[in-house]
Deep mutational scan, measured.
Amino acid sequence: KLLSSIEQACDICRLKKLKCSKEKPKCAKCLKNNWECRYSPKTKRSPLTRAHLTEVESRLERLE
């Protein structure tokens, strides 16, 4: 599967780190437990900047 097509777990399953069936409108866990089942939009991760990478590398060197 391509990364862009990976389905996201519902908010509660993601928060509780449960295996989500990803069914809509309610996944199996939410249906069974009568929880409100919501699927928040995916958040875009910002790409690493060179400055951040350099900072992490220098912190790693100090720890070694």
Rank of each mutant, 00 (worst) to 15 (best):
R50M: 08
S58L: 13
K24L: 14
A28K: 14
L48K: 06
N33I: 00
R50S: 09
K44M: 11
E7N: 11
A51L: 11
R50G: 02
C37M: 04
K17C: 04
L3T: 11
Q8R: 06
S5E: 11
K17E: 00
K32P: 00
K42M: 10
I6K: 09
K29L: 08
S5C: 12
E55P: 01
I6T: 12
K17F: 01
V56S: 01
C30G: 07
E7H: 09
S5K: 09
L31N: 14
K22L: 06
K22N: 06
L48H: 01
K26V: 11
Y39A: 06
K1A: 13
K29H: 00
S46F: 02
P41Q: 06
L63E: 03
K26D: 09
C20T: 05
E23I: 09
C27N: 01
L48T: 06
L48E: 02
S5V: 11
C27A: 02
Q8I: 08
C37E: 01
R14S: 06
C37S: 04
E61M: 13
S5M: 12
S40Q: 08
K29D: 05
C20K: 05
L48Q: 04
W35V: 14
R14E: 01
R50Y: 08
I12H: 13
S40F: 05
S58K: 12
N33M: 09
C10H: 00
K44H: 09
L48D: 00
C10A: 05
R59Q: 11
K19A: 07
T43I: 15
L2R: 12
C30R: 04
R38C: 15
L2C: 12
N33Y: 09
H52M: 05
K32I: 09
P41T: 05
S40K: 03
L2T: 11
K22Q: 08
L15K: 10
L2S: 15
K24N: 15
C30H: 04
S46R: 01
I12T: 11
C13D: 00
C30M: 06
K26G: 13
S58C: 15
L15C: 12
L60M: 13
L3W: 10
S46C: 01
D11I: 04
K26P: 03
D11T: 01
S4G: 08
A51H: 11
E7T: 10
K1D: 06
E64Y: 12
E55H: 10
C37N: 00
C30K: 00
K44F: 08
K17I: 05
L3K: 02
W35H: 12
P41S: 06
C13T: 01
I6Y: 12
K42Q: 09
A51N: 12
C10R: 08
K16M: 02
K26Q: 15
R38I: 15
L63R: 09
R62H: 09
E61P: 02
L31F: 15
K26T: 10
R50F: 00
L53K: 02
S40R: 06
C37T: 02
E64P: 07
L15W: 11
K42H: 09
K19E: 04
L15D: 10
Q8D: 05
R50W: 04
E64Q: 14
A9I: 09
A28I: 13
R50K: 03
C10G: 00
I12R: 13
W35P: 06
Q8W: 10
P41H: 06
K16Q: 01
L48P: 05
K17L: 05
K44Y: 08
C10N: 07
T49A: 00
K22M: 04
W35M: 12
R14C: 03
E55C: 12
L18Y: 07
V56M: 07
N34V: 11
E55K: 09
E57P: 08
N33K: 10
E36T: 12
K17D: 03
C13M: 01
C20P: 00
K44T: 10
S4Y: 12
C10W: 00
K17Q: 06
S40T: 09
T43M: 13
E55G: 09
I12C: 12
E57Y: 07
R59L: 06
L48M: 08
E23A: 13
E23Y: 03
P25A: 02
L31Y: 15
E64G: 06
R62Q: 13
P25R: 01
L18D: 01
K24D: 10
S46H: 04
A9S: 04
K42D: 05
S40H: 02
K42F: 10
R45T: 05
L53P: 08
L2I: 13
P47A: 06
C20M: 07
L53T: 01
E36F: 09
K22H: 09
